[in-house]
């Protein structure tokens, strides 16, 4: 039993990881970036830290009232909303959704925030 487990750990796992590096057999998210150009930080850093940047900014803006921060969710949307739908979510290749569904990380932002760029809300008197 133990030998089987050791075999699994030493033999199979590195092989699996290696094939992940090799990259061919592992599905990757398809992200369509509508507006190419410079982001507020290199892509590598954005991929790793966007959540912290946004969280830091959201607390500063909401709780202290600091406006005009570099990182901003609406800023993300302005650049990254898909040309076809105008949104960062809704399809499997939408900017936010593509990676988040790939990584199985729940997206909470859009329960409250508007995912469409340049959206103009209407008002209906209650």
């Amino acid at each position: 039993m133990r030998r089987a487990a050791t075999f699994l750990l030493l033999g199979v796992l590195p092989w699996l990881t290696f094939s992940a590096w090799a990259g061919d057999s592992v599905p990757k998210p398809t992200i369509r970036i509508a507006t190419e150009g410079k982001c507020i930080a290199p892509a590598e850093e954005m991929r790793r830290n966007h959540m912290d940047m946004l969280k830091h900014q959201r607390d500063k803006t909401l709780r202290q009232g600091i406006r005009g921060e570099k990182a901003s969710l609406n800023g993300c949307i302005e650049c990254h909303a898909a040309k076809s739908t105008g949104s960062v979510i809704g399809h499997d290749d939408s900017f936010c959704q593509s990676c988040h569904s790939y990584a199985a990380v729940k997206l909470d932002c859009w329960d409250c925030h508007q995912p469409k760029a340049g959206y103009k809300a209407t008002g209906v008197k209650p």
Binding site: C112, Q114, K116, Y119, A121
Partner: peptide
């Protein structure tokens, strides 16, 4: 659930 928020005024379900 809400979907038609003003981008500057986030609001949503359960809050």
């Amino acid at each position: 659930p809400l979907t038609q928020q003003n981008p500057e005024v986030p609001r949503g379900l359960g809050c």
